[in-house]
Nucleic acid binder design. Structure first.
Lengths: 155, 155
DNA sequence: AATATTCACTTGTAAAATGCAAGTGAATAT
DNA sequence: ATATTCACTTGCATTTTACAAGTGAATATT
């Protein structure tokens, strides 16, 4: 669908930004990691309201770049399920730092301060916990196996 | 020069991406933090080759958003010097995580593995060291007061 | 069994952002 | 006095994005 664009430089930061450095890619990853979203329709329903064609284009790119894999749902064959690869799961530390910065500098953030403090208190531990949870189909904030449920018990 | 665009949501990650989530902003910050660049001409000379009007637009936006401050050079009044604010310095942990991800996943990265390992070994310590260095006019890789010189002695 | 709805997209088009080449004016160097 | 450097701006072609409206296959409903 799209030709391979040549890289801008050999800088690792430039490489990373070519992979996920647009306005939408990290929001898709966020939806997976924090809210357990997995399908086109779920991504589309996010508050930010991205256009249908842009979402389709970004999902395809992220699959191309090896961040996501697409599988058809076993129980409903209309649905496609998008999952993070290892390479995609490796983005979790970046996501946590960005969220921390955003929560700190946005006066009207909706991020729970308790969560941010928890993450900042022991980042390596939280990365591991989130990673394992997401890998086994869970998320940070949603679902019975969410990270917050694991940490604070039944909801 | 540009009207205030309304925010997409109250998510801290969305807020952060609205501030620096385009293809170029973080490369400008990288140039400051890693290479000690400070002027329009220095940013323009980067390997990635950004267009002159885009660079001007990004510098203005980053100033608007409180990431950079612009001051005219005291010795050469043609020059404008761009410096990171506290809010901008707070991006250092994000930059380190992105660089680490990029170095790990780019097969042809030019990032020195020794540096990446060093950062990953004690991130909090390195963030502090880099922050103090940049705040006092230095950078990670360039100049006699660079972080690498501090760590490994004279170059 | 027939119809309606859901789901993951695609298509068309207008508006906006980007990339490129060529200026511009003020400050400094020659 | 003139040339060069510096930080931009301007104009225009190309690309990307946003919005609205489809499309076809799979599932749910009647």
């Amino acid at each position: 669908m799209k030709h391979k664009q040549q890289r801008r430089s050999d800088c690792p930061i430039s490489f990373a930004l070519e992979t996920f450095g647009d306005s939408w890619s990290l929001l898709i990853i966020r939806d997976i990691v924090y809210f357990g979203k997995k399908t086109y329709g779920e991504f589309l329903a996010s508050d930010e309201g991205m256009a249908t064609n842009i979402l389709a284009s970004r999902l395809a790119q992220l699959e191309d770049k090896g961040i996501l894999v697409k599988k058809s749902d076993t129980t409903d064959r209309r649905k496609e399920v998008y999952l993070l690869t290892e390479k995609g799961l490796d983005l979790i530390p970046i996501l946590l730092e960005i969220a921390s910065w955003g929560a700190h500098h946005d006066p009207q953030t909706r991020a729970p301060q308790a969560w941010i403090s928890l993450v900042n208190a022991d980042k390596a531990k939280m990365v591991k916990l989130i990673r394992e949870t997401v890998q086994s189909g869970g998320a940070v904030f949603s679902g019975p196996d969410s990270v917050v449920c694991q940490l604070f018990g039944e909801k």
